[in-house]
Amino acid sequence: MSGTIELAGKVALVTGGARGIGAATVERLRAAGASVAVVDRDFPADPTGTERTLLLVGDVTDPAAMADCVVATIDRFGRIDIVIANAGITPPPATIRSIDRAVFDSVMAVNFGGVLNIVRAAADEIVASGGHILLVSSCAAFTPGMGGSAYMVSKAAVEQLGRALRIELAAVGASAGLAYFGVVDTDLARHTLDDDPIGRRIGGFLPWPLSRRLPSQRAAELLVHAVRTRRARLIAPAVWTPYFWFRGMLNPILERSLVRDRRVAQIIRDLEETHAR
Rank of each mutant, 00 (worst) to 15 (best):
R200Q: 12
G78W: 03
N111H: 06
D81I: 01
P144D: 08
G162I: 03
H191K: 08
M146L: 15
G113Y: 13
I167C: 13
A189H: 08
A123P: 07
I118T: 11
S106L: 14
I118H: 01
D187V: 06
Q160I: 14
V83F: 01
H132D: 03
F112N: 10
G182A: 09
G88H: 07
D100Q: 15
F142V: 11
S98M: 09
I202E: 00
A150F: 10
G147Q: 04
S106C: 10
E168I: 09
P93C: 10
V103K: 10
F181T: 03
D195K: 03
V119Y: 01
D81P: 01
A121P: 06
W208V: 13
V136M: 05
F77E: 04
L188F: 04
R201Y: 01
I126K: 00
L188Q: 06
V136W: 02
T186Q: 06
V184Q: 08
S98Q: 11
E159T: 14
T90S: 15
V115I: 12
I82T: 02
G114K: 06
M146R: 10
Y180L: 11
D105A: 15
V127A: 10
D194T: 09
D196V: 05
A122K: 04
N111E: 11
V103A: 09
Q160S: 15
D81G: 02
A94W: 02
A170H: 13
I126S: 04
S175L: 03
T186C: 03
G113N: 10
L188C: 06
A156V: 10
T90W: 15
T90V: 14
S175M: 05
V103G: 02
N111C: 12
V158D: 01
A87K: 07
D124R: 14
V110E: 03
I96E: 11
V184R: 02
R163L: 14
V110C: 08
N117K: 13
G173C: 06
R190T: 04
H191N: 11
L116M: 15
E168L: 11
A94K: 07
S175A: 14
V103L: 10
S129W: 07
R120L: 15
L116D: 12
R200N: 04
V158Q: 03
V83S: 01
P92L: 15
Y151E: 03
V184N: 02
L165D: 01
A128S: 14
D187E: 14
V83M: 02
E159P: 08
V136E: 03
Y180H: 14
A87E: 04
S154Q: 06
L116C: 13
V103F: 10
P93M: 02
G148E: 01
A102C: 09
G130S: 12
R163E: 15
E125C: 09
S154I: 12
P207H: 04
F181K: 05
T192R: 09
D100M: 13
L134S: 00
V183E: 10
R79M: 01
V103E: 14
W208Q: 12
S175F: 02
I167N: 08
A123S: 15
V119E: 06
G177H: 02
I198K: 00
I99S: 10
S129I: 00
I84S: 01
L161R: 04
